[in-house]
Amino acid sequence: MKSTKAILGAGILASMLVMSSSALAQTVGFSQIGSESGWRAAETTLTLQQAKERGIDLKFADAQQKQENQIKALRSFIAQGVDAILIAPVVATGWDSVLEEAKEAEIPVILLDRMVDSSDDLYLTAVGSDLVHEGSVAGQWLVDELAGKDCNVVELQGTTGSSPAIDRKNGFEQAIAGKDNIKLIRSQTGDFTRTKGKEVMESFLKAEDGGKNICALYAHNDDMAVGAIQAIKEAGLKPGSDILVVSIDAVPDIFQAMAAGEANATVELTPNMAGPAFDALEAFMKDGTMPPKFIQTESKLYTQADDPQAVYEQKKDLGY
């Protein structure tokens, strides 16, 4: 008797579950660029996590940095009749025909992190970060931290000509524009790598009176900042106090540096692009709410006051 009740109860519960999820996406295809960087690996990990939490069956395809693989993956998702497609496009052009195929099959497509050059009625929405905003968050932090004190800033740019380097530079310059106490005295590319970040910082230190002339470093990514921090230490100065360090990305290693007091602030480029994407998708599936064409993720500022050690522990297993 008891067991029949239990079975009945379980049956009702199960049918409720099915009903509740029937309005939502059940299978979603995700075409990822490949494992080009630690950040991308973390994005993959978080997308899988988010899908699992929401009970979505995620079909994952790794394109190994090739557009033709992504197009193949999209076609196979369409053939399988998935409910929605997430894609992090490797390049901006050449997506029109495959996106039209998805549209004809009435499968909504959401772009993650990167944009495409196609017309915006071919995809539901795009989730991404505003690179200019990231730069200005970093710049604003420095403005607030200095509170009017004079400061000479050196800048480690990303790869010359790349859009993150251009936008993060512009954003920072916008934030410090009109602040007479802050001067950008040197700016050079560190190619987004630790080695170059260290080498260029070494030359900055020598060119600016052994670093005595420098009060802050702005690096377009954390890896260059980590390299530069070593250069500052080897020059006998204290990063974090003699020279303030602010950078962008929020990878785990910079939190270790912040916990040790060697870095001051970082702006997060969140790898959780899938969360907002799934939210938008759920709302769309439920009652047809059209999301805006661009969903901007939060560019969160982390400082030494945000318990960097705890953030490090939380981030270190995401595959960065």
Binding site: E36, S37, D191, T193, R194, T195, K198, D223, V226, G227, Q230
Partner: peptide, 9 residues
Amino acid sequence: DIRGADANN
């Protein structure tokens, strides 16, 4: 030098 192995770079 950078206390880490960066396979890409």
